[in-house]
Simulated scan of single mutants.
Amino acid sequence: MAETIEEIASRVRELRELSKVTAEEMAEYLKVPLETYCCYEEGKTDIPASKLFEIGQRLDVDMNLLLTGEEARMRIFTVTRKGEGVEVERRRQYRYQNLAGKFLSKKAEFFTVTIDPMKEKPTAYSHPGQEFDYVLEGSLKFYIHDHEIILDEGDSILFDSSYRHAMEAKNGRPAKMLVVVI
């Protein structure tokens, strides 16, 4: 199931208003200009996954609610069958699939992310916490803070995600990785 930018933006706006948080407060919390945040809520600009994660934390809601409009309900376990995770396109070169959206009170977010090759260097971003990435297919160049690291299939990296980071598929082919955001 793929959710549209407009559907997600509408849920973010509604949940923010229900939580009595102003757009100005949210923009300040996310460390983005108010104009950028307003574009997020209007569906004019795609909300980066890292910012969705932060919005969920600020509003004290599970990311699945932001992505799908459905509350997480599973307490003991949840199974996501191949190809059935909620798909989210956050940036042109990244395609996310949420792998555990239905589990209640998660301590982390779990995704597969497919990175398409691009001609230009990817935009770096940051978010609170830590991130673990395991390369499932292909080869990636990671940009983290002042470092560039090549990771191939089977390689992994754990890092402080408050540092700006980005990934770039190498060799003209898409790459796929398992991502855990803590």
Rank of each mutant, 00 (worst) to 15 (best):
G101A: 04
P117H: 01
L151A: 04
A124Q: 13
I182V: 12
I149W: 03
V180G: 03
I149Y: 02
E54A: 12
G56C: 03
E71G: 11
M63C: 04
Q93L: 14
K82H: 13
V113E: 04
E14W: 03
R164A: 15
A124L: 13
A175Q: 02
I182G: 14
A100S: 11
L158P: 00
M74S: 15
E109N: 06
A108E: 02
T68L: 07
R95C: 12
Y134C: 01
E54D: 09
Y143F: 14
I150A: 08
I5P: 01
H165I: 12
M118L: 11
R91P: 08
E137S: 04
L65D: 02
K176Y: 11
Y143V: 03
D160E: 04
E6I: 06
P174D: 07
S10Y: 08
K121T: 15
L15F: 06
K106D: 04
D116G: 04
A108M: 07
L140P: 06
E6P: 05
T4V: 07
M1E: 13
E7V: 02
S126H: 11
Q130S: 05
V113F: 05
K31T: 15
K44H: 13
S19M: 04
P128D: 09
V135E: 02
E14G: 03
E54T: 08
R95I: 12
K106Y: 14
G69D: 04
A23F: 07
R73Q: 13
E89H: 12
A166H: 07
M177G: 07
T80S: 10
S139Y: 11
F110I: 12
H147A: 08
